[in-house]
């Protein structure tokens, strides 16, 4: 325990925590996305899948607690590092031209919080006070039929894409997983995962809006 604390006291330790917690969340998001694909198989499939999950409280609560921890740790560390980095520059440059960094990396502290908002709304809508308890399919389709809600979801998942693109790549570096020969693979993986998740998640609201998926 004390060791974990000493580690956490360093900036590097906080980055490690962010990497681990971030990866846990990414893992959930992937699984969650795969489960949500049931949407395309119709109400029975999705509701059945949901019901099945809920019949396994251990799994559900286990996941919830793990996620709660992960988000807690991730967000706290993010906040602490954000405070430090904000103060580290001192006076700002009048001119500054970046060479190697990218949009995703520069906006981590935007995409992250946006994700937080997204999540709060998302949980309220589907988990905490769902319109039709038990009928996940109806909840989702009804929600996405409202263009505003869809738009919000599209925005949120774009932020997600950006965030995990840099996040996955950066997580390897933070935990020290680096080797000249494989470093390019880290990037490829980040692109692949973030692309699949983003496109996949965007497809849900879009296919509802375009009437591909209906009640």
């Amino acid at each position: 325990m004390s060791r974990t604390l000493t580690l956490y006291q360093t900036t590097i330790g906080k980055k490690v925590v962010m990497a681990v917690s971030g990866t846990i969340i990414v893992g959930f998001v992937i699984g969650h996305f795969l489960g949500n694909l049931n949407l395309y198989l119709g109400p029975e499939a999705l509701n059945g899948y949901a019901a099945k999950l809920h019949s396994l409280p251990a799994l559900v609560w286990g996941t919830r607690i793990l996620l709660l921890f992960a988000f807690g740790a991730h967000i706290t560390s993010a906040y602490l590092l954000w405070r430090r980095n904000a103060g580290a520059r001192g006076s700002q440059y009048k001119k500054r031209s970046d060479i190697s960094t990218d949009y995703a990396a520069r906006t981590m502290y935007w995409s992250g919080p946006i994700l937080l908002l997204y999540l709060i709304y998302h949980l309220l809508e589907f988990t905490i006070i769902p319109a039709h308890p038990g009928d996940v399919y109806r909840n989702v389709v009804e929600a996405f039929q409202n263009p505003w809600i869809s738009a919000f979801y599209i925005a949120g998942n774009l932020a997600l894409g950006l965030h995990i693109f840099h996040g996955i790549h950066s997580a390897f570096q933070s935990v020290g997983a680096s080797h000249p020969r494989y470093d390019s693979l880290r990037r490829d993986l980040a692109i692949a995962v973030s692309a699949v998740i983003t496109v996949g998640n965007l497809s849900f609201p879009i296919s509802v809006l375009t009437g591909v998926v209906t009640l």
Partner: peptide, 22 residues
């Protein structure tokens, strides 16, 4: 060395790669 680096008030690395570039 890491403790001293932090104590000097430098920021944390978020993997931008600008350092290597310059």
């Amino acid at each position: 060395m890491v403790a001293q680096m932090d104590a000097e008030g430098f920021g944390a690395c978020t993997n931008h790669g600008e350092c290597e570039a310059v």
